[in-house]
């Protein structure tokens, strides 16, 4: 076919800008980063060291302690999102999709507002509100008789990560809410009416009919949450700085990567160890995406209309 027709240059012209920018700024640096992880630098000369950087990262106590700490924190960060953000999102979406509810659009727009704010605003705003100096959080807890509950959460090692995870949940709850809401709207009215005839209404209609039908959307928000959480950085950096204090208790892979490759205060940047961390992040995200694509999504397709 191609031999009979002249070369269609316009196809190349249409594709070229996107392919060039995408390849040069995204794909090439991605693979270059994976390659750089196999090198090290001595006296400004680059040496190939194979997997040595990874051995250092996973095994050398100076590095591995920080790495496993960041990885563990990152899993906790993800766990809180799955446990709090997505159920709240589903609950809000279920209520919003009720056919007789008034002001639904108003609630929807208001609840989505935190999602559009930058991490810098969110991080500092919550830092101020939770701060013992300003005293908004303690005085509000006092008003409902729960003052004993208050602690300077962001300053305590044992609470800081959970508190920041919840701040992040507060910020992003709008996304699962919207996606689930969209999924609930696509459920045909006949199915719900048929269930009603059978006597299945209210809560049991939700659990028995709607929930199984929105499972694919729950799968999508889970993988979006996973990818988003494992390359998160901004909120921790804005609220706790690059050192992810107190004493690295809020350090996640993103902040660890930033400190390592860019350097911070007295610590010099090391692009090769940084690449090794980026490679580890890439592997984690890839594993997550593969589990979703081959393990979860293929099984869920059955439920879609």
């Amino acid at each position: 076919m191609a031999s009979r027709r002249p070369i269609r240059w316009h196809i190349a012209v249409f594709l070229a800008p996107a392919v060039l920018v995408y390849t040069a700024i995204m794909i090439f640096p991605l693979f270059n980063t994976l390659r750089l992880a196999l090198f090290t630098e001595v006296d400004n000369v680059r040496h190939f060291v194979g997997l040595q950087n990874f051995r250092t990262l996973f095994g050398d106590p100076r590095w591995s302690e920080s790495f496993w700490n960041a990885l563990g924190n990152n899993f906790w960060f993800f766990f809180i999102h799955m446990l709090v953000q997505n159920p709240i999102g589903i609950l809000l979406a279920a209520i919003l999709s009720h056919p007789r509810l008034r002001f639904a659009a108003l609630y929807r727009s208001a609840i989505f507002i935190p999602t559009i704010l930058s991490f810098v605003i969110v991080g500092f705003a919550w830092k101020l509100i939770l701060s013992p100096i300003w005293g908004i959080a303690p005085s509000m807890l006092d008003a409902v008789g729960l003052k004993w509950l208050y602690a300077p959460w962001l300053g305590k090692e044992e609470y800081a990560l959970t508190a920041l995870s919840l701040v992040s949940v507060w910020q992003f709850v709008g996304i699962p809410m919207m996606l689930i809401y969209a999924a609930l709207l696509t459920i045909p009215e006949e199915i719900l009416e048929a269930a009603e005839v059978e006597g299945i209404t209210g809560m049991s209609a939700f659990w028995k009919i709607k929930l199984p039908l929105i499972l694919p959307s729950i799968g999508i928000i889970s993988i979006l949450t996973f990818v988003g959480n494992f390359n998160a950085f901004d909120l921790i950096y804005a609220a706790q700085g690059a050192l992810a204090g107190p004493d690295f208790s809020t350090d996640i892979l993103g902040t660890f990567l930033y400190r390592t490759f860019f350097g911070f205060q007295l610590q010099l940047g090391d692009p090769h160890m940084g690449s090794a961390i980026a490679t580890a992040m890439f592997a984690i995200i890839l594993i997550g995406v593969c589990i979703y694509l081959f393990g979860i999504q293929t099984r869920m397709r059955r439920y879609q209309f």
């Binding site: 991605l30 270059n32 980063t33 990818v227 490759f261 692009p271 940084g274 980026a278 992040m281 995200i285």
Partner: peptide, 11 residues
């Protein structure tokens, strides 16, 4: 699905 941040070092 792959965040561009992974390639930051090389970018």
């Amino acid at each position: 699905m792959i965040p561009i941040r992974i390639g930051t070092v090389a970018i």
